[in-house]
């Protein structure tokens, strides 16, 4: 019984982080048509920056607020420069999609290695609420509970933003039919850039949250990119609710395998998406 409860708690926490990471990737692909394989690098940059901030005496929660605009600006600037040039230069939408993915691979090279030149490759960390609460025979770290609460809050806020705000509605319109949305007078280019920025920002939030409960290092990005890719495919490309569900599923799978056979968890992840893709070729919530 305790184990089951443990599995649920761990699964919720992992799932919350995974969902947060993948929503950004899903948005970037859904609207901006960029499969951002450098997504994890934004997580890494935010995590390392948080560590730097905390070492300067800034509270981690304040660092979270600082990292949001920073990562947003990086993502936004990248989109209005190189991705826009790429869009002009690639002839077709399909060519743009594949070129954009490769371009992100180049970004991955650059970001991860510049970070390594600056910060080295040792794992680093700081102490934040490193205590626990007991609940029905289980103990859970407080920092993880805080992280889970923030992750859930951000996810809900983001979903509300997409559903009810004016900009959110434009984003959804642009993701469904960019041409028609453009005809209706929306600035599609700007919306895409904002989406890419928001995607980067969500990754940044995730990065800061991860640094609150675990050590971080400059090589951590790729692992999270892989997780995000799996989740996004699981949930369906471009579907925000799909990412949330996918993230939770993966979190629970990871948690269950963490208790049974940790070394098989990656195998399980990939088996799940391989099987799912065979049954539903566009993911759970894919259109």
């Amino acid at each position: 019984m305790t184990t089951v409860l443990n599995i649920i708690i761990t699964g919720l926490i992992m799932g919350g982080i995974y969902a947060l990471i993948s929503m950004g990737l899903s948005l970037q692909y859904g609207v901006a048509k960029i499969l951002n394989v450098s997504h994890g690098e934004f997580i890494m940059i935010a995590a390392m920056l948080t560590w730097v901030f905390v070492n300067r005496g800034i509270h981690p929660l304040l660092a979270l607020v600082l990292c949001c605009p920073l990562t947003f600006i990086i993502g936004f600037l990248l989109h209005i420069t190189i991705f826009r040039w790429l869009n002009i230069n690639s002839g077709t939408a399909a060519a743009y999609e594949s070129n954009a993915m490769l371009l992100c691979f180049g970004l991955y090279f650059i970001f991860s290695n510049i970070a390594m030149q600056i910060w080295g490759s040792n794992p680093v960390g700081y102490q934040f609420l490193n205590r626990s609460v007991a609940f029905a025979g289980t103990v859970t770290a407080i920092n993880k509970i805080v992280v889970l609460i923030i992750a859930v809050a951000v996810s809900i806020l983001f979903y509300l933003f997409l559903t009810y705000s004016r900009l959110g509605k434009s984003i959804r319109a642009a993701s469904q039919d960019p041409v028609a949305a453009g005809m209706l007078g929306m600035n599609i280019k700007m919306i895409m850039a904002i989406c890419f920025g928001i995607g980067a920002m969500l990754a940044g939030i995730a990065g800061t949250l991860i640094s609150m409960y675990s050590q971080v290092d400059t090589g951590m990005g790729m692992g999270y990119t892989m997780i995000a890719l799996i989740v996004v495919v699981l949930g369906g490309m471009g579907s925000i609710p799909g990412s949330m569900i996918g993230g939770l599923i993966l979190g629970f799978v990871g948690s269950i395998f963490g208790y049974i056979e940790p070394s098989l968890s990656m195998v399980a992840y990939y088996l799940i998406i391989l099987v799912l893709l065979l049954v539903k070729p566009k993911g759970l919530m894919g259109r």
């Binding site: 443990n6 599995i7 761990t10 926490i13 992992m14 289980t138 103990v139 770290a141 993880k144 692992g223 997780i227 990871g254 948690s255 963490g258 208790y259 940790p262 070394s263 968890s265 990656m266």
Partner: peptide, 16 residues
Amino acid sequence: KSVPADLADVTPIIND
């Protein structure tokens, strides 16, 4: 217990 190099979360192991 054998664990992969990129284990996502060590909590289950510590609990165990």
